[in-house]
């Protein structure tokens, strides 16, 4: 038996919008810890890890660990039928091949049940080791989205370099090149507007902008994005989900031949 009630149902809607274009189908895992997902894109270049902790739900019942294979496009279609203020409850049972999404209006005067078929998905679960990163950049998520969009109109790849001076985003394409530098900038009144750079060592890595632009679909979930870089590791682009957990996108770098 599975019953997860989320007062702020819009969070789940936003999560789906953030990942459905990157990953078409995935197993959602439900355990005492929370509702989670780990999936790779079809090219196996990027990986998304989602965690919504059990404490963040208004009601969380998960009698035993359950994995639900879901087509994310279909789930997104169903969640789009929930109103922006609706409370969403996810219901499932062992041994059935469906999951039910229940939408309740704030006033409790409209209750909808959407039943969706589950599917068998044979997915690989990868172990993500804890790592020390050479540089960690925290910046406004809207600023990062703007940079990725702007650079995506010029080139296909972005070189992200962190030095004492700041974080530099560089691209080159047929029409020319672009270079954007963001310096550390702390705002006491509005910490979410700050750009904070923690650097142990300078680092410079190249990534496909197509993926970065896909990650920025999570911008609505958090005002701040954290970008963790190390020369021997995939970049981690993390959006915290208020008091509930996170979406982390991992992207393998492009390396000079």
């Amino acid at each position: 038996m599975l019953e997860l009630r989320l007062i702020q149902g819009s969070l789940l809607k936003k999560v789906l919008e953030a990942i459905k274009d990157l990953v078409t189908e995935a197993n959602f895992d439900c355990s005492a810890t929370g509702f989670s997902l780990q999936a790779m894109d079809s090219s196996h270049v990027a990986l998304v890890a989602l965690l919504l902790r059990s404490e963040g739900f208004d009601h969380y019942r998960c009698d035993r660990n359950l994995s639900m294979g879901i087509n994310l496009n279909n789930m997104s279609k169903m969640l789009r039928c929930a109103g922006p203020e609706d409370i969403i409850t996810i219901k499932g049972d062992d041994g059935t091949d469906t999951v039910t999404f229940m939408f309740e209006s704030q006033k409790q005067d409209k209750i909808s049940d959407f039943e969706m078929k589950l599917m068998d998905i044979d997915s690989e679960h990868l172990g993500i080791p804890d790592a020390e990163y050479q540089a960690i950049v925290r910046m406004p998520s809207a600023e990062f989205a703007r940079i990725c969009k702007d650079l995506g109109s010029i080139g296909d790849t972005v070189v992200i370099s962190v030095t004492k001076e700041g974080v530099k985003f560089f691209t080159r394409g047929d029409v020319g090149s672009a270079n954007i530098v963001c310096r550390q900038n702390t705002s006491v009144d509005k910490p979410e507007d700050s750009t904070v750079i923690e650097m142990n060592e300078p680092v410079s890595l190249t990534f496909a902008l197509r993926y970065m632009n896909s990650f920025t679909k999570a911008t609505t979930l958090s005002e701040v994005v954290t970008i963790s870089l190390s020369s021997e590791l995939p970049v981690v682009v993390e959006y915290k989900i208020a008091e509930m957990g996170y979406i982390r996108f991992y992207l393998a770098p492009k390396i000079e031949d």
């Binding site: 990986l47 172990g127 993500i128 190249t206 590791l233 393998a252 492009k254 031949d257």
Partner: peptide, 14 residues
């Protein structure tokens, strides 16, 4: 030229 690596190059199978 740059080569795109797969994520599995870095993270092992659980």
């Amino acid at each position: 030229d740059t080569r795109q690596f797969e994520i599995k190059t870095y993270f092992s199978k659980k």
